[in-house]
Simulated assay, not measured.
Amino acid sequence: MFNTISNQASKLINLTRRNKQLSKTKLITITSGKGGVGKSTFTGNIAYLLSSRGFKVAVIDADIGLANMQVLFDIKPKFTLFDYIEGKITIEEALLQTSYKNLFLVAGKSGYQYANHSNSFVFARIVEDVINLNEFDIVLIDTGAGLNEYVKEFLAISNNILAITTTDPSALTDLYALMKMLSKDKEELMLCFNHTRNHQIGDTISNSLINLAKKNRLNDNFMVKYIGNVSTSANISTTGRLRKLFSHEFKNDDSTRQLQAIIDTLLKNIK
Rank of each mutant, 00 (worst) to 15 (best):
Thr173Lys: 09
Asn269Phe: 11
Met179Val: 15
Phe136His: 02
Lys186Gln: 02
Thr173Asn: 11
Tyr226Leu: 08
Ser40Asp: 03
Glu135Trp: 00
Leu178Thr: 12
Asp61Glu: 10
Asp264Cys: 03
Asn148His: 10
Tyr226Asp: 07
Ser110Val: 09
Cys192Glu: 00
Leu105Phe: 09
Cys192Ser: 04
Val230Leu: 11
Asn235Arg: 06
Phe246His: 05
Lys225His: 15
Ala156Asp: 04
Ser206His: 05
Ser120Arg: 15
Thr25Asn: 10
Lys101Met: 11
Leu242Ser: 13
Glu135Tyr: 05
Asp185Glu: 13
Asp61His: 08
Asn7Leu: 06
Asn269Arg: 15
Asp61Ala: 12
Ser255Met: 00
Asp83His: 12
Gln258Cys: 02
Asn211Ala: 13
Gly65Tyr: 10
Thr29Arg: 08
Phe104Ala: 10
Leu266Phe: 07
Asn68Val: 14
Phe136Val: 03
Asn132Asp: 14
Ile46Tyr: 03
Ile60Leu: 14
Thr232Tyr: 09
Lys214Gln: 10
Leu140Ala: 06
Ile89Ser: 08
Arg197Val: 02
Asn194Ala: 01
Ile263His: 01
Leu27Lys: 07
Thr173Ala: 13
Asn159Cys: 05
Met179Thr: 14
Arg17Ile: 06
Val57Arg: 02
Lys24Glu: 01
Asp74Ala: 14
Ala107Phe: 05
Tyr84His: 10
Met1Ala: 10
Ser206Ala: 13
Phe250Gly: 02
Ile236Ser: 04
Thr167Trp: 00
Ser255Lys: 00
Lys78Tyr: 05
Tyr176Gln: 10
Ile85Tyr: 02
Thr239Ile: 08
Asp142Arg: 06
Arg18Tyr: 07
Arg53Asn: 11
Gln8Arg: 14
Gly36His: 00
Asn159Glu: 15
Ser231Phe: 01
Ser158Trp: 00
Phe250Pro: 02
Asp168Cys: 00
Thr43Glu: 00
Ile85Trp: 07
Ala107Pro: 09
Gly144Cys: 08
Asp203Thr: 08
